[in-house]
């Protein structure tokens, strides 16, 4: 059974250690809303100091308009815990990020927003970047079979945590899932009160 989780144009962002301050700078964190962050994505790279678009930044290049799969390098999303980072990425239009590795908090935040983050070996990442150099790429992500379908029967498989996979496939509200253990939470609280009363 194949199940296409996402498909679309690939944007190759050839950088390592992209931190959350680059993904969305501090001045956009004052909002009380979960929306409206698309314009803030990669702000200092996307826009010049005078506010005009930076023509040298890849997201501004005409051939990458409408991209929905982001390809990048190692340790993507390092730094702060701001969930505004995956919000900005998702609201811009990316629902899949392929990288050699991700920072832990960023990974969790992205999954909690239904995004798919795929980690691949350095050689596979290099292979995909080289493919992007050959021309515009339209890929499909088969989540059930854990494959990136590159077209013309070419594919790259990927490993992933099976609990994360189930969550993405089921689309289950993660608070709701935990609430099924409410009786156990109550029991834990009672036992905790007994054993360590100073904890409150």
């Amino acid at each position: 059974m194949s199940q296409i989780f996402a498909k679309g144009l690939v944007c190759p962002l050839d950088k390592n250690n992209v931190d959350t301050d680059q993904i969305i700078p501090k001045q956009f964190l004052t909002s009380v809303s979960r929306d409206g962050f698309a314009e803030a994505l990669f702000f200092d790279w996307r826009y010049q100091a005078d506010g005009s678009a930076n023509p040298e930044f890849i997201l501004n290049e005409p051939q990458y308009q409408g991209a929905s799969i982001l390809l990048t390098r190692t340790n993507f999303g390092c730094g702060s815990s701001r969930e505004h980072a995956p919000w900005a990425i998702q609201q811009y239009g990316f629902n899949v990020i392929i990288a050699e590795s991700f920072a832990d908090i960023f990974f969790n935040n992205s999954v909690n927003n239904g995004m798919l983050l795929i980690s691949l070996s350095a050689s596979n990442i290099e292979f995909l970047f080289n493919r992007c150099k050959q021309g515009s790429q339209q890929w499909q992500i088969d989540l059930a079979n854990q494959e990136i379908l590159l077209g013309n029967n070419a594919a790259v498989g990927f490993a992933m945590d099976q609990d994360v996979k189930q969550r993405l496939l089921s689309g289950l509200d993660f608070i709701g899932a935990s609430e099924t253990l409410s009786p156990q939470i109550g029991q834990y609280e009672a036992a905790r009160k007994q054993a360590t009363p100073w904890l409150g």
Binding site: S81, N109, N112, F174
Partner: peptide, 8 residues
């Protein structure tokens, strides 16, 4: 002790 996102 660890940092979490807003959904968490």
């Amino acid at each position: 002790a660890f940092g979490i996102g807003t959904s968490e």
